[in-house]
């Protein structure tokens, strides 16, 4: 019974939030902050796999998010909305609640294939050189999309809100919120299962001593492939959800600035801590909203805060510990490792 307490609590929380949204107990602003929170949790925890557990310095997460956002947006627009280039909707709106998750899967798959651009060179190189490869990959994705006029180029791509309308025409509940929350839970669940298995522990082994890992029978190339593709695929999921939340994407919103933001969340939370990444993502989203009144100064204050954090608590909020390490009582309900 105790084993299921956490699961039940999580799903009860989701239902509660959805009900709040449904009956307008929370206004639209809070709902959208909540959705960005979810997206950020996915981004931070997926990047944590590479930057935290594997100890690489990937600074191109925004690029993979971009691939996912565009691919899944194009899929949904193809299926459910009228677009002057892509034509009339291919499917009737009744299929939207199946079509949308499929589009998300397509986006994640595409971005995890894009992750190969980084994964394959990582076999031979690591550290700073790999960081540059991720950076270049980010730039390449952005400028490739900037040059694709058919999907709007630098002006961006829109029409995703038709999918939401299509889903709501079936049943009027906050679909996007539901998908964001489910996506978040799915991500954390998937990553937790991965990193807690002996297979997944090969990833921190590479971080701590790659040579020992390779010689003690860890197939490092395979582990790197899994880590990069999983991480970028989940970033693609985040991108797909983000695009649906906004109803509009443009390449500029996935540039180095975005990648930096995600890195900030990872290092704020603590490398190699899944709960740390999630907490940091939530905290960061709240902070961004709370400091909105600072206007331009927000982007001076937040980096300064992080500089101070690096000076006084460089290991981040959680270090490499999980919630259950800090509060052993939690272990009864949910073990993180």
């Amino acid at each position: 019974m105790q084993k299921h307490v956490a699961t039940i609590a999580i799903f009860a929380g989701i239902i509660l939030l959805v009900l709040c949204a449904q009956f307008h107990i929370l206004d639209q602003y809070y709902i959208s902050v909540l959705m960005f929170m979810g997206v950020n949790v996915i981004l931070a925890s997926s990047l944590n796999l590479v930057n935290g557990y594997m100890g690489e310095f990937s600074c191109g997460h925004g690029g993979f998010m971009c691939v996912g956002a565009y691919v899944s947006s194009i899929c949904t627009v193809l299926m459910f909305s009228k677009n002057h280039i892509l034509g009339a909707p291919l499917l009737p709106p009744q299929f939207a609640f199946i079509g949308f998750p499929l589009a998300l899967v397509a986006g994640s798959a595409a971005s995890s294939v894009a992750g190969l651009v980084v994964a394959i060179p990582s076999f031979k190189t690591r550290g700073d050189y790999l960081a540059i490869i991720t950076l270049a990959a980010n730039y390449i994705v952005i400028s490739a999309i900037n040059n694709m006029e058919i999907i709007g180029g630098p002006r961006g791509f829109m029409g995703m809100s038709a999918t939401e309308r299509a889903m709501q025409s079936m049943l009027d509940i906050p679909w996007v919120l539901i998908f964001v929350l489910l996506g978040t839970v799915f991500t954390v669940w998937l990553l937790r299962r991965f990193v807690s298995s002996t297979l997944g522990k090969g990833v921190p082994a590479i971080c701590q001593d790659e040579i020992a890992a390779e010689i003690m029978s860890v197939d490092t190339n395979r582990m790197k492939l899994i880590a990069f593709m999983l991480s970028s695929g989940l970033a693609g999921l985040a991108g797909g959800l983000y695009a649906q939340v906004l109803g509009y994407v443009n390449p500029q919103s996935f540039d180095i600035m975005r990648s930096t933001e995600v890195m900030v969340m990872v290092y704020l939370g603590g490398m190699g801590s899944l709960s740390g990444a999630a907490i940091a993502a939530i905290l960061y989203t709240v902070l961004m909203e709370a400091l909105r009144f600072l206007d331009v100064w927000k982007w001076v204050v937040i980096p300064l805060l992080l500089i101070l954090l690096m000076q006084f608590r460089p290991e981040g909020i959680m270090g490499n510990k999980e919630l259950s390490d800090l509060f052993p009582k939690l272990r009864k309900y949910y073990s993180f490792k």
Binding site: T198, K201, C207, Q208, D209, A212, A213, M216, S217, V218
Partner: peptide, 25 residues
Amino acid sequence: IRLWSEMHVLDNIRIAQHYRLGYSL
């Protein structure tokens, strides 16, 4: 000595059995 220094001893010994994991992702 080249142990994985941030993981406890048990994990160190588990990970070295990677070649006979026998299960997929």
